[in-house]
Amino acid sequence: MITLRHGEPRPTWGFVIVSVPRGNFRAVAHDVKSDRMTDSEGGPDLTKDGPGDSAPERGAEGGRPLVVAENVNKHFGELHVLRDINLTVNSGEVVVVIGPSGGGKSTLCRSINRLEPIDSGKILVDGKELPKEGKDLAKLRADVGMVFQSFNLFAHKTILDNVTLGPIKVRKQGKQESEKHAMELLDRVGIANQAQKYPAQLSGGQQQRAAIARSLAMRPKVMLFDEPTSALDPEMVNEVLDVMTGLAREGMTMIVVTHEMGFARRAAQKVVFMADGQIVEENTPNEFFTNARTDRAKDFLSKILTH
């Protein structure tokens, strides 16, 4: 109860002048900055091992099933947007979902934490079927991180408050502990020196990295990425992909909807190709990009890889 009240004297709305950081956190931000010399421009250095390494094979076989979709169907009115989807994502596995627009990639991604309810079939996360609504669903969502195309940082809160909100209000973690963890995460994604700013003051790439930190702060079992780089200027794509590649290397279970073929080759164990609401092909990245099994996939690849 006391930890809950802790945040209350600071108004959650109103009375905060955007340009003036609140002093008591500034010290924290500065410490981290001076200790570790974080640089927001260059992005985090999480890929020191060299991008030349081929995708690690770990997790592809060994892990237990963490996300399982069984015969999932969904309609948007007349449109049958998910058709009999069956998919298993093992613990530690990185799965990239690619395919043409309108093929159901995003819907599948969003249905895994029930931002889109499904019509029939089953989705299990860590062995438990998705609860329908209410507290149980909220609890499950806390364990499933989600990163959106449009970042969706809380516009009226500082970056630090964005990252600590979930841990404090959902996990009921102490404020100091949450802030310490948040600063570590922000440092890791390379924006610790932006902690006191508001989302609108950051570049797209920085906002998306902050959004990743916000998800990580919940210590999720699995992370969903719904086209995380599609809304970014080209020059900012890599700073976000580097963070994601670093996460993949550390063994985070990830489902990534993306058009970034380089990321798929570099970090994924499995590529899922979706078109017209169906999973057309599941393959390893190497096989898929060099020697796709299905004509639909070959056709798609020929259109995007020629230029």
């Binding site: 709305w13 109103g14 934490n113 931002l115 959106f148 970042f151 516009a155 009226h156 979930g166 919940m218």
Partner: peptide
């Protein structure tokens, strides 16, 4: 308020009441 604000609030595990109180209404009032 962009729909994404509420979706982000739900995705970190806030309940409806929490997201209304901490995310939606504060921005709506402003």
């Amino acid at each position: 308020i962009p729909l994404g604000q509420a979706e982000a609030a739900r995705s970190i595990g806030l309940t409806f009441t929490q997201s209304l109180r901490m995310i939606i209404l504060p921005q709506a009032f402003r």
